[in-house]
Write a protein that binds this DNA or RNA. Sequence first.
RNA 1: GGCGAGGUAGCUCAAUGGUGGAGCAGGGGACUCAUAAGCCCUUGGAUGUGGGUUCAAAUCCCACCCUCGCCA
Length: 596
Amino acid sequence: MTEYILVAAAWPYANAEIHVGNLTGSYLPADIFARYNRLRGRKVLMVSGTDSHGTPITVAADKAGTTPLELYKRYHAGFLELFQKLGLSYDLFTSTHTENHFRVSQAIFSALLKNGFLYTESQQQWYSTSQNRFLPDRYVEGTCYICGADGARGDQCDACGSVLESQLLLNVKSKIDGSTPELRTTEHYFLDLSKLQRQIVDFLKQRQDYWRPNVLRQSLGQMEADALRGRPITRDLDWGVPIPVDGWDNKRMYVWFEAVIGYLSAAVEYNAIHGDPEGWHNWWHRNGSRSYYFIGKDNIPFHAIIWPGELIGVGETLDELLGSQTKGKLALPYDVPANEFMNMEGKKISGSRNWGVWGLDFLSRYDPDPLRYYLTVNMPESKDTDWDWSDFLRRNNDELVATWGNLANRVLSFAYKHWEGIVPDPGELTAADQALLTAVENGFESVAREMEAVHLRAALAEAMRLAGEVNRYLDVTAPWSAIKTDRQAAARAIFTALKAIDSLKILLSPFLPFTSERLHTFLGGKQPLFGRQVVENRSDALGEHAVLMYDGSQASGKWEPSRLEPGQRLEPPAPLFKKLDPSIVEFERGRLGNQG
RNA sequence: GGCGAGGUAGCUCAAUGGUGGAGCAGGGGACUCAUAAGCCCUUGGAUGUGGGUUCAAAUCCCACCCUCGCCA
């Protein structure tokens, strides 16, 4: 039976460049998991896109003297470039600023409205007369009405730590232009989470055996301590998804409500592009389909409480509104393997202080697989981790190059040199040869176990451990000595080692797709292991948007042990990885904190 | 303030009540196919602090300290 796996990666927000913390937090683990599942023969749909709406983008656009549309497109283009260079194999990386996403988001809104999970309420909110717009709480500051300190934000006073009601702030100023705003009444739609609370709790409890404790406990703990309250889902803005209700023309959907819908709308768009408009049901309605949401810990409530709440509230009504032929409840998240954060040389990553390593900048000086390797072995799966340049150097030189790259290189060059580029005939294998091959073959179980549980760093460690086994095997069999006295014994050892690295290439390929692909060609592979990444421009009523897609039609990689046969022609080998000079540590540290 | 996660060897992390381990770094050795890589041996711990429960605690309970996230 075909298994359908939805790999949902967080949607990068279009007002900042992507740094290594973003990558290791969600985009990279999503890709590793997607590649692994494709190798298993499962129908993977890895989706995401640029989160392109919201007040911060309109404010940033004003500041930069451009429009929100242009600003979003600029960041979106950068995201596409980075994801191609890092090999992030999105089946569809799109955007929230598409006709399709508007249509699906409005259908979700209408379904929730129809099912009685939305209500309206009037609020008082600060309005900037100089800019003719309402100011979100984070864009006003003033004097704290509790402790009297200046510089309190609309939602919180840093001086006394109190949570504030923004309309009670004194001496209020706009943080955008310093003008004095006035209070005006505005009406908004609210998502009635209190009505959904019971079902959300049930949903979480059904998953409590396998979810990560931080994700589960935070969500359930919060709900046990405080009943869920309604949350506003509209804003006074003109940039975003319009409200599908008459008389609400000057409001837009709140981004947190609308961006998560992207997981669903992107599945719809993907299948529409591929000529199968009903295909998205395979991931969203089919029994046994599973969805994995790869996000950072800051996003846990949206994915473990609010998005499931939206899906529960929508029920089967969405199908009616979209005119689908298949009907059913939408699939709730199977797992939300949220990661903690990655810091930079002991301090928090900060864009404004240029304290971080930015993806595109990194890839202008280094290769993608060493980055993928370091970010995986150091992935913040259970707690915050730290990017340290000397650790990066060490992991690259002493682990990736020394253990794995050197193993592949020593075996391939020896084989190429002594058997004229042909896989030698081993004759009958000894017990030791069989034992090594069995150990490596068992890796397809042991690495898979960790992968299935989304323990990616453990999975990679297990694969690397097997590379160490092969190095030890070579030390015992010493084909460089045997070749002088017993050519058949040397052939046996080299054949066995070639077969082992042929398997290891697959076990490591979700983590190291570029170098596994190269090794695959060195070993004589003709069909690529993985598919290609393609960028296309799509047109709709909102204009053009570029999408990144994955074309797996030529992919031949399978999650199974090597079938390498004697006589197979090899290609001339070359090192898979570069050893880095220790001077990069000081060089890179010197760039931190400096502009440009 | 409320809800959580984390604090274990120099570094990065395992270990869910039963003698605290691994990788790397550090020290020693034999080898030489390989990017001087690989292999063997090895030094190294008041498990954040203070109490408690237990025959037995890194692990369970209480308090406190520090870091991070969400509620905001």
